[in-house]
Computed example of a mutant assay.
Amino acid sequence: MNDRRIAIMGIIDARKKFTARELAERFEVSVRTIQRDLDYLQGIGVPLYTEVGPHGGYRVLPNRILPPLQLTRSEAIGLFLMLQVLEKVQDFPFQSIRAYLAEQYYAELPPDVQEAIDGMKKHILFYHQQPQQPSPFTMKLLEAAMEQKEIRFLYQSAEGAKQSTAYPLGIYYDNGFWYMPARRSHRVLLYRVDRIAQLEVLDNSDGSLPTLTEWMAAPDERDSVEVVLHFTDMGARLAGNESLFRSMKDNQWHGQVPPEELAFLSRKLLMYGPEVKVATPVQLQEAVVELLERSLKQYRPKSEVDGS
């Protein structure tokens, strides 16, 4: 496929309406040459259709069948590996077609590439932390975020089930869980998707919502306190997989944390035990000590706990 046809496919993928004459002027070729290009694209599976009349032109079906990929042997094996990884991500959007895609793609590969994939699968495994509860609403949440629609949902929090409405910004996957940042009453709150028990997409929409990537990149404007953590070598290794501590340097982590998040952080630090020490602030030190004392209390003799 030549560069011009690849560029035409870029225009098609943008779902823009176009005429053969516009393309001919853009690429400085004849209309007949463009028509041959369009005939070629139709031949490889791009479903073009023509609109007649003074404002007519070419369009493509929104849910069109895309042309096949032209991959090298290594690229084909790499793509199959990526499909295998996605299989391990529970409740991945569009998950229903992943197995079908892998099977269909594998079936169309040459025998030598199939043999290479079969051999590779014996030497590589992918593990993901799987949440105890499923997250069945990832697809609906993603669609609601893309359409900037409001949702009504029943959320299972530590205080019990509560119904809320919010505007989801998107979803992201981290350490085995799906998360949904959503704007509610001019604040963006973070929800665990597996804790959403019921979901309804409403008709209300808000065009002023930021995208998920914009929200992630924006600085946190809440009041915060400086937190300094000292990790041991073992603690640094354990915390290295935690997204929160990726900025750790020389076994030390510095960050700004809103006071209302300190309780959550103290529970997270408890899993590292003696492998981390809170340098500052004092309120976080006290929160960790309180949790440790409550944990130890479970193992003390009852007479000692009662003070008798």
Rank of each mutant, 00 (worst) to 15 (best):
K121C: 03
E260V: 11
K249C: 07
L291M: 14
H254N: 13
A20K: 12
F80N: 00
L142N: 09
S164M: 07
R237Y: 03
D203T: 02
E103R: 11
S224G: 01
V227Y: 13
L244Y: 15
V188G: 11
Y49T: 10
A287G: 14
V31F: 00
H230F: 06
S308Q: 02
T280L: 08
I12Q: 08
K88I: 01
E147S: 05
Q163I: 09
L48R: 07
F18A: 13
L83G: 12
K121L: 14
I34K: 08
G53Q: 10
E226F: 01
T211P: 00
Y127T: 02
R5I: 14
Q114W: 02
P111W: 02
R15A: 10
S135R: 09
L199G: 02
A279R: 11
Y272C: 10
P301F: 01
Q285S: 11
K297Y: 09
E261V: 03
L296Y: 15
A218K: 12
N204M: 00
I124Y: 14
Q130L: 11
S135V: 00
D220K: 10
D206T: 04
E51C: 10
R59E: 08
L265E: 08
A236L: 08
M248P: 01
L154G: 02
A239M: 06
L109R: 14
A182I: 00
L41S: 11
E200Q: 15
T165K: 12
Q163W: 11
F27Y: 15
E75I: 12
I12V: 15
P210N: 01
P136M: 12
G57D: 02
H186L: 15
G235A: 10
R21T: 13
L81E: 03
Q114K: 12
I196D: 06
P111F: 01
L141G: 07
I97L: 02
T50S: 06
R192K: 06
